[in-house]
Computed example of a mutant assay.
Amino acid sequence: MDMIADILLVAGALGAGFYCYVLARRLTKFNDLENGVGGAVAVLSAQVDDLTRMLAAAQATASDSSESLTALTDRAEEAAHKLELLVASLHDLPTQAEPDEPEQKVVQPVFSRRMASGRDR
C-alpha cells in the first residue's frame, strides 16, 4: 500500500511539475514584447505618448486661434461702432435740392437714299 501511495504521489508531483512548465511557457509567450500582450501594451503605451503630445500641440494651436479670433472680433466691433456713428452723422446733413434735369436732345436718325442705277428700274 505504501508503494501505491508513493507512486501516486510521484505521479501527482510529475503532473504538477508538467503543469507548471506549461504555464511558465504560456506566461513567457504572453509577456513576449514582440508578439504577446507585452508587445501590445508597449505599442499602446507609445501611442498614448504620441497622442498626448499631439493633444498638447492641438490645445496650443486652439489657444492661439482663440486669442486671434478674440482680437479680430474686438476689431470688428470697433469698426461696426464707427460705422454706426458715421451712418448716424449722415442723418444730420442737410438734404440738397436736386438740380433740374437738363433737356435731352433727341437725335433723329439720318436716312439717305441713293439713286437707283438704271438696272434696277
Results as ranks from 00 to 15, higher is better:
residue 116 A to R: 09
residue 79 A to V: 00
residue 53 R to L: 12
residue 21 Y to L: 14
residue 53 R to I: 07
residue 5 A to T: 01
residue 119 R to P: 01
residue 86 L to I: 00
residue 1 M to C: 02
residue 88 A to P: 00
residue 72 L to S: 13
residue 108 Q to H: 03
residue 56 A to D: 11
residue 107 V to T: 12
residue 57 A to Y: 04
residue 8 L to M: 03
residue 13 A to Y: 02
residue 62 A to Y: 14
residue 100 D to K: 07
residue 76 A to E: 08
residue 18 F to I: 09
residue 78 E to M: 04
residue 48 V to T: 10
residue 76 A to P: 02
residue 61 T to A: 15
residue 32 D to T: 03
residue 70 T to Y: 08
residue 31 N to C: 06
residue 23 L to V: 11
residue 101 E to M: 14
residue 103 E to W: 03
residue 23 L to W: 13
residue 90 L to M: 12
residue 99 P to D: 10
residue 118 G to K: 07
residue 31 N to F: 06
residue 3 M to K: 03
residue 16 A to D: 03
residue 85 L to M: 05
residue 49 D to A: 13
residue 104 Q to H: 13
residue 51 L to K: 07
residue 17 G to T: 11
residue 84 E to W: 01
residue 38 G to N: 06
residue 97 A to Y: 04
residue 93 L to R: 08
residue 6 D to G: 01
residue 11 A to S: 05
residue 103 E to K: 09
residue 20 C to R: 13
residue 12 G to R: 04
residue 102 P to C: 06
residue 25 R to T: 13
residue 109 P to F: 04
residue 69 L to D: 14
residue 13 A to P: 00
residue 109 P to V: 08
residue 111 F to V: 14
residue 11 A to V: 09
residue 19 Y to N: 06
residue 21 Y to K: 15
residue 112 S to I: 15
residue 87 V to P: 01
residue 41 V to G: 02
residue 41 V to I: 14
residue 109 P to T: 11
